[in-house]
Simulated assay, not measured.
Amino acid sequence: MYQPLSVFIGLRYLRGRSADRFGRFVSSMSTAGIAIGVLALITVSSVMNGFEAQLKGRILGVLPHAIIANGQLGSTPSTIEQWPHVVDTAPIKTTDAVIQSRNGLSAGLLEGIDPKATEPLASHLLQGEMSALRPGRYQVMIGRAMASELQLRVGDSVRVMVTSASRFTPIGRIPAQRLFTVGGIFHTGTDVDNQLMLANIEDVAKLSGISPNQANDLRLFLDDPFAITQLKPKADPATWTDWRRWRGELFQAVKMEKNMMSLMLSLIIVVAAFNIISALIMVVMEKQSEVAILKTLGMKDRDIVAVFIAQGSLSGLVGAAIGGVLGVLIASYINEIMAIFGVSLLGNGLALPVVVNPFQVAMILGLAVVLSVLATLFPAFKAASVHPAEALRYE
Rank of each mutant, 00 (worst) to 15 (best):
V162C: 12
V162M: 13
V162L: 13
T163I: 15
T163K: 11
S164F: 11
S164A: 15
S166I: 02
R167N: 08
R167Q: 10
F168K: 13
T169M: 04
T169I: 03
I171C: 05
G172N: 06
G172E: 05
G172M: 06
R173S: 12
R173C: 05
R173N: 09
R173M: 10
R173L: 11
R173Y: 07
I174H: 12
P175I: 06
P175E: 12
A176K: 01
A176W: 01
Q177P: 05
Q177E: 11
R178P: 06
T181F: 07
V182C: 11
V182F: 02
G183Y: 01
G184L: 03
I185A: 13
I185H: 09
I185T: 05
F186D: 06
H187S: 15
G189K: 03
T190W: 06
D191R: 07
V192S: 15
V192D: 14
D193R: 04
D193C: 10
D193K: 01
N194E: 15
Q195H: 10
L196V: 12
L196Q: 08
L196F: 08
L198C: 06
L198H: 01
A199N: 04
N200Q: 12
I201Q: 09
E202M: 13
E202T: 15
V204G: 02
V204N: 00
A205L: 03
K206D: 07
L207G: 07
S208M: 14
I210E: 07
S211W: 06
S211M: 10
P212G: 04
N213Q: 14
Q214M: 13
Q214W: 10
Q214C: 08
Q214G: 08
A215F: 04
A215N: 10
N216G: 11
D217F: 15
D217S: 15
D217H: 15
L218E: 06
R219T: 05
F221G: 00
F221P: 00
L222Q: 00
L222P: 00
D224L: 02
D224Y: 03
D224C: 09
D224T: 11
P225V: 02
P225H: 03
A227K: 12
Q230K: 14
Q230S: 14
L231R: 01
K232Y: 07
P233A: 10
P233I: 09
K234C: 02
A235Q: 04
A235L: 04
A235C: 01
D236R: 10
P237E: 08
A238V: 02
T239M: 13
T239D: 13
